[in-house]
């Protein structure tokens, strides 16, 4: 079975130049992503986990064609996107869609929900009855058709995230990339959105890339996970394997640091948590 992977990264690096601090020395360079190679199969649910500064957000921008790698190659469905100018990436915009963390700032407050959801259709010149499509999409994410003529601020956080998902689904993509989609939500709403993601990814047969700092959420959602630290992928593996027998010390300390209700009730204290992380970071 040598099917083309949905997403493939080969030796991808992304450097950022810091502002010059001295006239004589060259400006310092920050390696946000360092030699990352990975492959996401079609229909797979792939997680990217890392703490702040791990480079996961930069990696996500690279995969979405919103930024270009300094070196290396990025293939989406077998086609290279790394070296393409933005206007040659129309096909990518159709195949791959993005859902953001903050459901407030990711929706234009001055646009009605129907215009927000139809935006990918309009900007990509996809024809057909946009109104009917918007109604269909609202139904898919569990919102009333009546929502179409309202503004984002009239919805709660979880509902806004549903609108975000509807917008992403509008051009009928194959790949859904989600950047911390539940981090800003309350627990009761988080469960609703996680269930929706589950339903949609299964129902529409999507490939999912799910970026999060929260290992327990990733564990719930994903089949396979890449753990990032300081721009590098330190470990990739099946989610359950990664949790039960982490192959890298950093993964182990990440797993150990997650507060867990059951473990806490069984007597795990804050001190035990901290001990798992090792010496103060």
């Amino acid at each position: 079975m040598t099917e083309t992977p949905a997403i493939e990264l080969r030796g991808v690096c992304r450097d950022f130049r810091r502002p010059r601090t001295s006239l004589r020395e060259a400006p310092p360079v920050v390696r946000a992503v360092q030699d990352v190679s990975l492959s996401v199969g079609r229909g797979e649910r792939f997680g990217v986990v890392g703490e702040s500064g791990s480079g996961k957000s930069t990696l996500l921008r690279l995969i979405c064609g919103l930024d270009r790698p300094t070196s290396g190659e990025i293939l989406v469905e077998g086609r290279s996107i790394g070296d393409q100018p933005a206007r040659r990436l129309r096909w990518l915009r159709r195949r791959l869609q993005l859902v953001f963390q903050d459901p407030m700032s990711s929706l234009d407050p001055r646009m009605r929900v129907r215009d927000i959801i139809a935006e990918p259709l309009v900007s990509q010149g996809i024809g057909g009855d946009h109104g009917a499509r918007v109604t269909e999409l609202l139904g898919q994410v569990g919102l009333d058709p009546e929502a179409a003529r309202r503004y984002p601020h009239q919805f709660s956080g979880g509902q806004r995230q549903r609108i975000s998902v509807a917008r992403a689904l509008a051009p009928d993509p194959d790949i859904l990339v989600m950047d911390e989609p539940v981090s800003a939500l309350d627990v009761s709403v988080r469960a609703q959105v996680l269930n929706l993601v589950d339903e949609i990814v299964d129902g529409l047969d999507l490939t999912l890339v799910f970026v999060s700092h929260d290992l327990s959420v990733v564990r719930h959602v994903c089949d396979r996970v890449a753990v990032m630290r300081a721009g590098e992928v330190v470990e990739t593996g099946e989610t359950e394997r990664l949790f039960s027998e982490p192959g890298h010390d950093y993964t182990a300390s990440l797993v150990a640091a997650i507060p867990d209700l059951h473990a806490a009730l069984a007597g795990r204290s804050a001190q035990d948590l901290a001990r798992g992380v090792g010496p103060a970071s």
Binding site: E51, H213, D214, L215, S253, L254, A257, P259, S281
Partner: peptide, 12 residues
């Protein structure tokens, strides 16, 4: 971050 959270909780 989670790892930092663990140490801060311990300190608290």
């Amino acid at each position: 971050d989670v790892t930092v959270q663990a140490t801060v909780l311990d300190l608290v």
